[in-house]
Design a protein around this nucleic acid. Structure first.
Lengths: 232, 232
DNA sequence: CGATGGTTTGAGATATATCAAACCTCGTGG
DNA sequence: CCACGAGGTTTGATATATCTCAAACCATCG
């Protein structure tokens, strides 16, 4: 019995392309690893030595300039794939935002296994194409949207991704509530803004009764259509 | 004898994964198409009906907001693949910047063919992973770089991509010369700036003897290390 | 209870956008 | 051949969104 048998993302990750026997083989080359918030799995610019599936938690993909400016270029959730297979170097670091569990493979082992399992590569291709679409949509935000639109778009995306967040009907209208896996600084690094600008936009949305902020990390979207309108 | 036999990108495009017989089959489902500057092959948000290989020319991938702001999210060159296989809708439009030749497939035909040829899917995966890396690097530019750094980065990338541009040694130092496939407005749409800001950065770089501008579309990089330093 | 790290708020500086006009370049037609 | 017009580009003056710097604030933890 392998760890895969009890894996909660077994049917959503790329592993879903494999049958029982194939999974058994794959499980011999993978191993689980636990990460605490702030802990990195991969560093920007290093040789691509490992790839992984996210089992639990949220991680950021980020790059930066020499003088210390940072940009978060992606966020991954359970069942997402991380790392750069079939490639020389990783162009961005991977760091846990929350406590996280990942299923790690040496890149060489994974590459070899994948090349012999077209169904796995197909899943990976689908996932990569989807990620590319999402990333390009984010470019519109970074290149052309105002601070207000960026923050609103961010909250809309969060509410979609963290669907585990409660979604309640309070006296006749729909509310969404969730806990952000990001600090204010990290939100700024996702949106290409400063922490102060992000903070001001949060309080503005709160004053306009579009959202509510019970605590630093918690968000309630009070006026969902209103927020979508703000997202531009 | 199929069109593929004389295709100039035969060995660089994803088709390189196929043998003679497979190519023969593929060529029966593809057809060539010529595009003039400004002509679109795919429109943002429409159903994904076709995919293609670029044979000749340069094309832009772009999205926009409802109120008319535009962002170019990618630029493709000969041997690049365009369109969204295995997927519902295209999240960005594809428009020719120069005269262009493409090899077009119906998405359904291509999907079916690809699924039966893992080597082709593997090539496509590699290409997609590379494109994702490049796109993420561009996010750093859009999120964190100044106008000066953006324009300089753009020119560096152009000089790498348009290596067909002459590269001469003029009295002891290296110069690069090429013709831009973009108007100033399109450069602005790539960089997330306005046309005026792009123009001002061009003249600044010219005044500082880092580049020279013999005509609107032509660029000579006089001081290559200087430009790279400006790119940040 | 005080220290600490993250967050919010405020006042001022600045890079880039906006609006407007002048300027080329190139093709067209007189 | 030259004048004209049109599109794209450059330059200028001003506005403004966002950044920067600085201080106050607030939870959390020892």
């Amino acid at each position: 019995m392998s760890a895969c048998d009890t894996c909660v993302i077994r049917n959503r990750a790329i592993c879903a392309a494999l049958n029982k026997d194939e999974i058994a083989v794959l499980s011999t080359i993978g191993r689980r690893r636990v990460l605490v918030p702030g802990e990195s799995l991969i560093w920007e610019g290093e040789d691509s030595v490992l790839v992984a599936n996210v089992i639990e938690g949220v991680l950021k993909l980020s790059t930066g300039t020499e003088d210390g400016r940072e940009q978060i270029v992606g966020v991954v959730y359970p069942s997402d794939f991380i790392g750069r297979p079939f490639g020389a170097t990783t162009s961005h670091g991977v760091t846990a935002l929350t406590d996280a569990k990942v299923c790690v493979f040496s890149r060489r082992d994974f590459d070899a296994f994948a090349r012999e399992h077209p169904a796995l590569e197909h899943k990976l291709l689908q996932r990569t194409l989807g990620e590319l679409d999402r990333t390009r949509r984010w470019m519109l935000l970074l290149g052309r949207k105002s601070a207000g639109e960026r923050v609103a778009s961010f909250l809309v995306e969060m509410s979609e991704r963290l669907a585990n967040g409660r979604c309640d009907t309070i006296d006749g209208h729909l509310e969404m509530r969730f806990t952000l896996p990001f600090s204010r600084q990290q939100i700024a690094d996702v949106l290409g803004l400063t922490i102060e600008t992000v903070s001001r936009q949060f309080t503005r949305l709160k004053n306009e009764r579009i959202i509510d902020l019970p605590s630093r990390r918690e968000v309630i979207i009070v006026d969902i259509p209103g927020l979508e309108a703000e997202a531009g």
